[in-house]
Amino acid sequence: MSRSRLKLALLMLAVLLFVGSLMAGKAWVPVDAWWSGDPRWMIIAELRLPRALLAAVLGGVLGLSGAVLQGWLRNPLADPGVLGVSSAAALGAVAALVLGVASQWGVFAAAMGAAIGAMALLAALTWRAESAAAFVLAGSVLASLAAALTAFLISIAPNPYVVAEVLDWLMGALTDRSFADLGYAAPFMLAGAALLLLTGRGLDALTLGSDAARSLGIDLRRLQALVIAGTGLAVGAGVAVTGVIGFVGLVVPHLLRPLVGARPSALLVPSALGGAALVLGADTLCRLAPGPGEVRLGVAMALIGAPFFLALLLGERGRSWG
């Protein structure tokens, strides 16, 4: 399949899943009810539309940032989590919840602020260090520190309701997300995605190692700044409104690489489309799961993603990476 055909197929898949996401839920709303003045239209316009839009954008940036980070670190096992941005954003949100910030905007601002602060710290720590190892090390230190501080905050939470609220948030979900959430997060996510889309040339050159990339005229510091700022904005904003949703950034580029070829720049747009499709599909399945409540998207993604990825790895055993 040619690359443009694959992109078209992925786009159509994402659109189909988007429409499916609008139709599906505890109440099934058929398409002809959308424009016939049916009162169920409200369910779609007010509840499902913002949720589906958020799922599409979130999946897109998670897939895209996964593809960028795998290219940047030249490692098929990298995902946005290695930068510590998700953990930092979660820390910000948890701090806001524990300190009693009630407004949606307050929680978002705290999470986004923490994500940007962590990325600034990461940029400072890895400035002049051009090895991928230093980058991964600094990222994991940030992630562990944020996780430890989050645990500390939970342990000093004033009452069990706050703890429940925090745990609920940490599990990651798109349930009841409104246009207001979308309004806070989308500009950051789209700005981050725009920065990440500028990295293609540099990522391609890095295939030959950092010396060869620099000899090809690539400014590795600029590339690193784009990767950090782009991931920080896009994933930070995503986590700030949905909580931590893993595996998308890891699995999607990995699944698409055999189809589009291993050239990192060719993987960026397909990964964004594939990520959008995956999150839309998974969120729809969460909604359709039987029972009174909903399975958390973050939980579902890990439950589906981990065994799936394990199977993939076992299937590839014996073959070399990439």
Binding site: T207, G209, S215
Partner: peptide, 14 residues
């Protein structure tokens, strides 16, 4: 300047 490094790395299976 075309530069050919000593270590012939190719990180992705292009």
């Amino acid at each position: 300047i075309g530069y050919l490094p000593q270590d012939a790395v190719v990180h992705w299976n292009m």
